[in-house]
Write a protein that binds this DNA or RNA. Structure first.
Lengths: 338, 338
DNA sequence: CGCTGGCACTCACATACGAAGAGTGCCAGG
DNA sequence: CCTGGCACTCTTCGTATGTGAGTGCCAGCG
């Protein structure tokens, strides 16, 4: 177990390194934080911290920098979440309130997060499977062509074209629309398959094929793979990464373009609170030198999606966590209102 | 006027520089292209080309690189558009055909363009103002709350929440829906304001306020500012920009995040064919070292939106132009089918 | 036992110098 | 108008050297 002072030394190292972006030495440490001991003592502590794997030196006779393990300890034990100031909270609220539709909410959230944290922001659209159905609309565009429109309680709208095997009359369509809505409106998307499975039986033989086609399109829309969308922003902040970044930035940009990777990344956050994954804790190789701070958000008590930021492992964790948490909270409010 | 050979020299310089990314000297030129003259002669030609402002040397006693003006001449007079090969065309078509909805079409187009050109791809959603109305749907979500859904012939869907000044009955809603659609279905969005202006008069006094509110929301949705959306991708390709790129890549990423800037950029392309804007021809400062290749696309004869790529001025213009043109053509086809 | 000051040691980094090489401009001759 | 030759200019790269930050270790002190 590390002594109290050694933990303080680690905290000081993390703070200084995050601020200066340069390896921090024993002398500088004692000057900037009054630890009450001499550089030599700090050196001993640093040697111990290095043995434990919390810090490392890039090369002999340079200062120390925190390792992923060091940041982990810092986040878990040494630092809290820095709450937003009142003016900041007001600004967040104001900015989000101007949104006209869900796309706009998400777009604004991304910009806000990127600006607040000066990092790359990732916001997942409210998940379909975790939402409830507000309305299902069917529009006849041609005799054998129907547009299916799905609307969730979070304001998300999905649409699909359906090519019917046989012409489908206006009255049959109205019938299907009514039956469908009476069964699924207000229900969770996950329950929809069971709720509609016997629906074709209620129709005339000639329409049954079309009804089945419409329903299967509906169910397809709910399949996990298609339904997860997200928006990213603030990639320009990647340029503040480090001096060496040709090699650093490339894999990150590539990872950010892979929606699948990002969704996994956000999905891993299980905790009800803010989740932090540091450096190599991220499964994806390209993100080994980044940290991901994420949290769920939702219109009610339950999370319907995730949002977060991606930044260098050398980041201001308390501040970032505070910003992410605050934004998630306000987005949830906005969604609940709409 | 430049002699034929000098133009050939310029063409050779552009091609070599695009290939090697390094300033090209007179000796290397004569070796790789059989111009039939000696390096000394080429040197004279190069001096002339430099006087005219088509090429420049980064520093004394280095090779020459093309200037923006040089690229312009190359694009206008010295190079054509390189058509895609048959397998490439098939691949494009196959890839786009798997799309399930408009978002998917746009997303796939972005990925395709980025991959084909190895540059940053930008695709604008089909414009509302240049499309026609397929259907307007009104859904009653609460007594005094209506959702407005707009569907275009290109498959684009916009929705807005409307808070009504007074409760609005199902029958009035159905009435409004029917009247609205009979007036605007199949018409161009730009004509909608005139077509609906007298609509409130057909309703009872108590509903008139609500009808006006719904209509004004509809018109707001059509306002230029809100209706232009776009998607970008392939930003990882920016890392192939140059060796110096901290300074190069930053402003480009920033510009790409400004939707307004990008829309202007694409909007400037007036030509029915492929438009190329080179380096300083781009109004936005951050894009002074990039070229933008763009083209309109549309479901019918007319362009409903633009797409293009952003890359270094040192790019393979004929190949890029070919890819952009081909993708635009196939996207148009896909949209026409849906 | 823990803290401290002192001291020798190690590298990264910056600066300077020199050689190499690529490329140019110019000129005289064909 | 083209060509070979030649002197000149700079960038680039490798080597050498000095400087300084930072370290590890040790002996002494409270």
């Amino acid at each position: 177990m590390l002594s109290e002072r050694r933990l303080q030394v680690l905290r000081a190292i993390v703070q200084d390194y995050v601020g200066t972006e340069e390896p921090v030495g024993s002398k500088a440490l004692t000057e900037r934080h009054n630890l009450g001991v001499s550089p030599a003592t700090v050196r001993n502590d640093m040697a111990a911290l290095e043995d434990e794997g919390y810090i490392a030196q890039p090369h002999t006779s340079a200062g120390r920098i925190p390792t992923d393990r060091g940041y982990r300890l810092f986040v878990d034990k040494l630092a809290g979440v820095k709450p937003m100031t009142a003016p900041e909270r007001r600004a967040i609220q104001n900015f989000l309130e101007g949104a006209v539709d869900l796309d706009d909410v998400v777009a604004r959230t991304v910009r806000l997060l990127a600006q607040l944290t000066r990092q790359v922001a990732v916001v997942q659209y409210p998940s379909l499977t975790r939402s409830t159905v507000r309305h299902v609309e069917l529009l006849s565009l041609a005799p054998a062509r129907v547009m299916l429109v799905l609307i969730t309680d979070t304001g998300r709208v999905e649409q699909r074209m359906v090519d019917c095997p046989a012409p489908f009359g206006e009255s049959s369509l109205a019938d299907l629309r009514a039956r469908l809505n009476s069964r699924v409106a207000g229900r969770r998307f996950t329950d929809v398959p069971k709720l509609v499975e016997d629906l074709p039986e209620a129709f005339e033989a000639e329409d049954r094929g079309t009804v089945s086609t419409v329903l299967s399109t509906l169910l397809e829309t709910l399949v996990e793979e298609n339904e997860e969308r997200l928006m990213i922003g603030g990639t320009a902040n990647l340029t503040r990464f480090g001096h060496d970044f040709p090699l650093t930035i490339r894999p990150v940009l590539e990872a950010l373009e892979e929606q699948v990777v990002l969704l996994k990344l956000l999905g891993e956050a299980k905790d009800p609170g803010v989740t932090v994954r540091i450096g190599h804790e991220n499964a994806h190789e390209g993100l080994n030198s980044t940290s991901v701070v994420s949290v769920g958000y939702g219109s009610g008590g339950e999370a319907v999606a995730k949002l977060g930021v991606v930044g260098p492992t050398r980041m201001d964790y308390p501040g970032t966590m505070g910003a992410v948490r605050a934004v998630a909270r306000y987005v949830g409010q906005i969604l609940a209102e709409s």
